[in-house]
């Protein structure tokens, strides 16, 4: 099972607050892989809206995604594409 980790800059307008946080979690939950999101010292479950909201990541902030499981690659691609959207 592959485990991939990647640093990504959050570009969505509202960072990982509000609606983007909910959408991120919805995407993450489509995959079976375990998804961990890290920002500085804090590490949360990427499939948890509570976790993502507590992270409080603003636009322009760098986070690390660690994805572990069968569909890790496509999960990471999907999430990265989402975080890169600036609209």
């Amino acid at each position: 099972m592959p485990r991939i980790e990647k640093k990504i800059v959050v570009k969505t307008k509202q960072g990982l607050h509000a609606r983007p946080a909910a959408m991120f979690v919805q995407i993450a939950n489509k995959y079976s892989s375990a998804i961990v999101v890290r920002r500085d010292e804090e590490e949360v479950n990427g499939k948890s809206i509570m976790g993502i909201l507590m992270l409080g990541a603003d636009k322009g902030c760098e986070i690390a995604l660690a994805v572990d499981g069968q569909d890790a690659e496509s999960a990471l691609m999907d999430l990265e594409a989402f975080l890169g959207k600036e609209e």
């Binding site: 919805q26 949360v44 479950n45 809206i49 509570m50």
Partner: peptide
């Protein structure tokens, strides 16, 4: 209500 449902499905919680 999507947010409500997400909380209810929240794995951490």
């Amino acid at each position: 209500f999507d947010a409500h449902l997400l909380v209810l499905e929240d794995c951490m919680l």
